[in-house]
Design a protein around this nucleic acid. Structure first.
Length: 735
DNA sequence: TCCTCACGGGG
DNA sequence: GTGTACGTGAGGA
């Protein structure tokens, strides 16, 4: 027990606890990890007929949970300016609230509820301004009870001071999906351990000793959510040897089961999860987009959303931005509607027609061009929401314009995030390549980007708490308007608009080859639309491809080109698809890289020979069996349960095979890896215990895929005539 | 020719 | 505790 004292440090963890009320973990400047407690009552609201509210009062008083009841007059929600009477239920112990509310909602389903299912850390953030790794000054009593809490920095600071985190990495020696792991590999700083998984007793004893000695802040695992931690917990129980995965003693871990859900127009699979108390567990394999932004991005998401780090690491689209909106609502005193369980309702025909109005899509002029500038509106949809003040309660009309009116909830939520991202991008642009801050800034910028992108979709989501389809449509409507105004501006400056796509424009003017040539039109577009626009780059050459079905029809999102700085941009080609084998993607990319040496469209034919030689080498490697099987792997997502396929996709056939041989069940949304093989069933699942016979590989099919990818490039660049005149390629097509 | 299935964003 | 929709291309009946 420490005496009454003042502590300064970083807020590490925050959760409800039956004894403490709220438990806070502080990484102190003294290097110690302090467990503190804080009284933090939770209030939720109910509205409805007075008689029913009186019944609810009686019910609540009969419960063993300490509550305080009061009548309050508040604005019911964003759309109702008048105050209305509500019953305020103040639950004294935060850990009681979720269960109590579930009971209430079940017994009184006819009442309307507010602030009922809000994450504890958002409530805390709204009251104290806290967020994960906030710098805090805390006054605490001798038993660790917080008497005062002051946050010293803000989530919008560009360079927050960071604590030194103790990290323990832990992973199996073999991917458990593909084989039987024999040992755990542990790493912390320069320390390395290898712990055999069997026998279990010494494993548990050693692991316990390591956890106690290192006392890591972060347990960073591979397959920890779905395999390792569940296994360790089972073993620990079986052998009656407690394992201190939590830093908080005497508490179980928090587990969530696996599930498949519908998101972004497709099925997504989410494995089970294990989360700890007083310590973070992040599973690289289960963390959303860990490869994209890793720990730095996770911490950034946690800071700006106020969600705990373990939640932020597993963030699903919508959750992050929704959390920011809820926090903003609490700060503004707007009641947060309870998100009910809603059954899936098909859209009406009218809604379908209305939602047809998406982003502006234009038909590009098919062909290869030089002197082309690519212009992008910067975070277009979020910018529109902020600039035009689009929010559910501002009741957008059909036509919106930039406005300086008092911002609504959604713009208020977005503005600081947008501002922070622009500042960060600005700083990145002026940063030399060797600067070590580049990687972290990029990771943070990417995390912010993801939040900004999903916030637009969330506005049109029917189950969103602060969504409204009209607001959603107002955004896309102004987006189209802005693009049309940009087109007019470009034409006034003598440019030909080759293409427009949602938030980008491709402008061509003979001789335009310097950024300065585009400066005036950029300024003019900002002037006419109120939205910032940037020059993505100037193409040495860019090719817009025709449809594969009809060579006279352009398609909006199939193009590729080389910028003056040597970088390459590709859309809609095989190398961009996640279901292309790596070998096909890289072979196609190599071809584009060869042509990227051309200074203009006219020089492209000079590189045809080099490209064909490159293709020849790749095809020879394939026919001679020199391509590693990993490079030929195809990954596809299961779109439904296996028995729901009318004509099973290759992925479904591979999953069936896996089930027959290993008994392993794959769920919708899970990714299946397989090779194309000859004969039935035409695939060989990669996770089968037996590797495929290399002679069984369907080389013919891979060659077809390679030739198709090559044709996309060569025909797109007009250095070869279109199919079926594939004579120049013919000589490379022998087995 | 029609139907089914998978992908797409950014960096 | 889950953004929506739609267009493109491939493969098979």
């Amino acid at each position: 027990m420490t005496p009454a004292s003042e502590l300064t440090g970083w807020l590490f963890d925050l959760y409800a606890d039956p004894q403490d009320g709220v438990t806070l973990w502080l990484l102190g400047d003294d290097g110690r990890r302090h467990r503190l407690r804080q009284a933090f009552p939770i209030t939720f609201y109910a509205a409805g007929p007075p008689a029913r509210l009186r019944e609810l009062c009686r019910f609540l008083k009969s419960q063993p949970v300490p509550v305080e009841l009061a009548r309050e007059e508040r604005r019911r929600d964003l759309f109702q300016p008048s105050r209305q009477p509500l019953l305020a239920v103040r639950v004294l112990l935060a850990s009681d609230q979720p269960r109590l509310f579930r009971q209430v909602a079940r017994r009184f389903p006819d009442l309307t509820y507010y602030d009922a299912d809000v994450h504890l850390s958002l409530r805390h953030a709204a009251v104290y301004g806290t967020f994960p790794l906030a710098r805090c000054r805390v006054q605490a009593g001798p038993d660790g009870t917080v008497t005062a809490l002051e946050v010293l920095d803000s989530p919008w600071d560009l360079d927050p001071p960071r604590p030194e985190l103790r990290i323990l990495e832990m992973e199996p020696d073999v991917d458990p999906a593909r084989g039987e792991p024999a040992a755990l590999e542990l790493r912390s700083g320069r320390l390395r351990y290898r712990l055999p998984l069997r026998p279990a007793r010494p494993l548990l004893v050693n692991l316990r000793a390591i956890l106690q000695r290192l006392d890591p802040d972060l347990l960073l695992t591979n397959r920890g959510d779905t395999w390792l931690l569940p296994l360790l917990l089972d073993l620990s129980e079986e052998h009656d040897l407690p394992l201190p995965l939590n830093r908080a003693p005497g508490r179980g871990v928090a587990r969530r089961g696996e599930r498949s859900y519908f998101s972004y127009g497709r099925i997504v699979y989410r494995g089970s999860q294990v989360m700890l108390f007083g310590r973070w567990h992040i599973d690289r394999a289960n963390a959303m987009m860990w490869n994209d932004y890793a720990l730095e991005g996770v911490l950034e998401s946690a800071r700006v959303t106020s969600l705990p780090v373990q939640e932020a690491a597993r963030l699903s689209p919508g959750t992050g931005i929704s959390s920011m909106q809820i926090r903003q609502a609490l700060v503004q005193g707007v009641l947060v509607p309870w998100r009910k369980q809603q059954s899936e309702q098909p859209k009406t025909a009218l809604q379908l027609i209305e939602s047809d109005q998406g982003g502006m899509v234009y038909q590009p002029l098919i062909g290869v061009y030089s002197s082309v500038g690519a212009l992008d509106f910067i975070s277009m949809y979020p910018s529109i929401m902020v600039r035009c003040n689009i929010s559910p309660e501002t009741v957008p009309l059909r036509h919106v314009e930039p406005s300086d009116a008092d911002p609504g909830l959604v713009p208020r939520t977005l503005a600081p995030l947008l501002e922070k991202r622009v500042a960060l991008k600005h700083r990145l642009a002026g940063m030399p390549g060797w600067d070590p801050r580049r990687a972290t800034d990029k990771a943070r910028s990417s995390a912010q980007k993801w939040l900004l992108v999903t916030c637009f979709g969330y506005l049109g989501y029917k189950n969103a708490r602060f969504g409204q389809i009209e607001a959603h449509e107002a955004v896309t409507a102004y987006g189209r308007e802005a693009l049309m105004r940009a087109k007019e501006a470009a034409e006034d400056h003598g440019f030909t608009v080759l293409h427009m796509y949602v938030d980008g424009l491709w402008l061509h003017r003979p001789g335009a080859s310097q950024p300065a040539d585009f400066e005036p039109v950029l300024m003019d577009i900002l002037e006419r639309t109120g939205l910032p626009v940037s020059l993505d780059g100037i193409y040495k050459w860019v090719a817009f491809l025709p449809s594969r079905v009809d060579e006279r029809t352009p398609v909006p999102n199939r193009y590729f080109g080389a910028f003056q700085d040597g970088s390459i941009k590709v859309r809609g080609l095989a190398c961009r698809r996640h279901d292309s084998p790596a070998w096909v993607g890289s072979l196609q990319m190599r071809l584009i890289e060869i042509f990227a040496k051309a200074g203009s469209a006219e020089e492209l034919p000079d590189y045809l020979n080099e490209a064909l030689n490159s293709l020849h080498r790749d095809l020879t490697a394939l026919s001679e069996g020199r391509v590693p099987l990993e490079e030929l792997l195809v990954t596809q997502r299961l779109s439904r349960a296996l028995d729901r396929y009318t004509s099973p996709s290759p992925a479904a056939r591979a999953a069936l095979q896996l089930r027959q041989v290993t008994g392993r069940e794959m769920r919708p949304g899970q990714k299946v890896r397989f090779l194309f093989t000859r004969g039935e069933p035409g695939v060989h699942a990669w996770d089968l215990p037996e590797p495929p016979d290399p002679r069984q590989i369907d080389r013919e099919r891979y060659r077809e895929l390679a030739l198709r990818a090559a044709r996309e490039v060569l025909e797109g660049l007009r250095v070869l005539p279109p199919e079926p005149t594939l004579l120049p390629l013919e000589k490379y097509t022998r087995r």
